[in-house]
Nucleic acid binder design. Sequence first.
DNA 1: TTGTATGCGTTATCAT
DNA 2: ATGATAACGCATACAA
Lengths: 342, 342
Amino acid sequence: MSKSSGRNTIADVARHAGVSKATVSRFLNHRETLLSPEIADRVAVAIAEMGYTPSPMAQALKRGRSRLIGLVVADITNPYSVAVLRGVEQACREAGYLLMLFNLGNEIDRESAGIRALSSYRVEGFILNTMGYDAGALLETARQGRPIVLVDRLHQGLDVDFVSLDNQQAIYLSARHLVDAGYEELLLVSEPLANISSRIERLTAFQAFIAEHAAVASGTCVESRAEESDALINALQEARVRAQARSTMPAVIANNAVVTLRIVAAVARLGWRLGKDIGLVGIDETEWAPYVGPGISTVLQPTAELGRLAAQCLMQRVGGSNVPVRRVLLPGTLVARGSSQQ
Amino acid sequence: MSKSSGRNTIADVARHAGVSKATVSRFLNHRETLLSPEIADRVAVAIAEMGYTPSPMAQALKRGRSRLIGLVVADITNPYSVAVLRGVEQACREAGYLLMLFNLGNEIDRESAGIRALSSYRVEGFILNTMGYDAGALLETARQGRPIVLVDRLHQGLDVDFVSLDNQQAIYLSARHLVDAGYEELLLVSEPLANISSRIERLTAFQAFIAEHAAVASGTCVESRAEESDALINALQEARVRAQARSTMPAVIANNAVVTLRIVAAVARLGWRLGKDIGLVGIDETEWAPYVGPGISTVLQPTAELGRLAAQCLMQRVGGSNVPVRRVLLPGTLVARGSSQQ
DNA sequence: TTGTATGCGTTATCAT
DNA sequence: ATGATAACGCATACAA
């Protein structure tokens, strides 16, 4: 290879090889169209010598397809989103697609801007993990028939593929684990529902579990906000009082990693010991879970797999498939640690 | 607004407004070129009615500039990288640039692929936070005069702008804090140097600090690998023996958050109490630092600011500036918690 | 099998 | 002040 890799155009290669642009283009795109070996060779050599790379921009313009997938995430700071991103990225790469990322930074009003920006780059499909405030209406105008896959958060009124943790399974898994460990007074702590489907589903599943297991356990739910640590502490204390009426300890299910951390802080403030004085299972595995207190039991989401599936669903539709809308739910895995052992 | 936002072309708008494409283009780009208010109005209305958005692809093709900045990250899973990313993103957005992210997923051999991919999309500049294995040689061929800014990791032989934490200051800050807190036996724990400049700088700074403070403290260094937790435990125990010879407790500086977690695990295995039996300051603030043990003291990097500066440096050069190569070092901030209080 | 010519959506150069 | 037109880099219908 000699000099520039990007500035060279197909015309340069053609000239260098002593053929027409069309021939070079055919060599690149339609290898099957048998061009005489001699010519093919000349082209190949020229391409190699010049380090020629086609301009995806020009290709996209001409073809109408960009080989780009648009990924919109609510908050790139969220480890869950990053983990999914990795799966998406890998699947896209294997299929020859490049990922165009748009991060909302939790500013929901940028959602429309993000979709528009991606749309203007002619992404061939969208993967959305967002708040979904007004996406429904907006999206229809912006996507122009391009497929969409939703991850983790379902938007009502948007009839598209959906890939997510099986929230009911995850909650049942956690609750049953805690009950099996001897806890009878359960508390589900969630961030404000804010109409986010995954949070609502987990809440609903929890209530269903409690209803089905009234004989062996009772449970309550509470929303936790960053600013109101006292409310959480109160909820914990009340749960403990109720538990002691049954001569047991209370146990908490944390709806996500953020809440898990808040509970850890509250428990520390109360001077309780995780596992001993209160049980805890957190949804979402984290790097620090093994090292906080006696280790925090978690439900591990198959994030990479979720991302891969989302990308594959999308690319299948990009490829023209018209199968009915799918809901793909993957089970979580319990990682038992000290926080759920009395 | 009425229907499609992306498929409409400048020709559609022109037709709709009863003017030529050139006029619409001028309205969009050269507002200064006075077009008659009446015509300008017609165009404005047409654009609004059709929800027209120019195609960045076509613009890039024509202009030769894409308004794209390429960001290559060694590992998107690393919270540090994500934090910097947010700063970069914001600065780019404010300047009307979009970010094209390429994640290496810690596979260094993908570095060249990443740079090539970005390059082929005609990004106007690169921000690199990578391992930098062979970047030096490679880059020169791929970047074609496009500016580069390095973040956190300097590549030798690459004479470009560099933005990073002031590693010496961070180490001095940590070490002095520990000495002031009464610890006299210091231990620096680092991941394998692997020729990564930031790790080497911190090590060097630590050795310098020890040399300058021989009267009040002594110190050693150790590399930690994920697979060798025993080595770390041994190093900790040896440090304690040395400290006890001076009737004090040992203290550790962790080179990054990963190492911090390993130290926490080792300390737990030893049955020691953070702060009491061993001091700890970790470089890199994390969400979990307040909740592990008595709270872990950290050095907070101004990540968002680092990202912003990197982006601004880059865009200044993209704008044509030819100022001499810069090294921008920002100081860290100590967040004192229980792990450094005896 | 290969070359010529056209168009993708823009912007810029020329006229008018 | 506005309009026709060429060109950006590429892929393809059509001609040869």
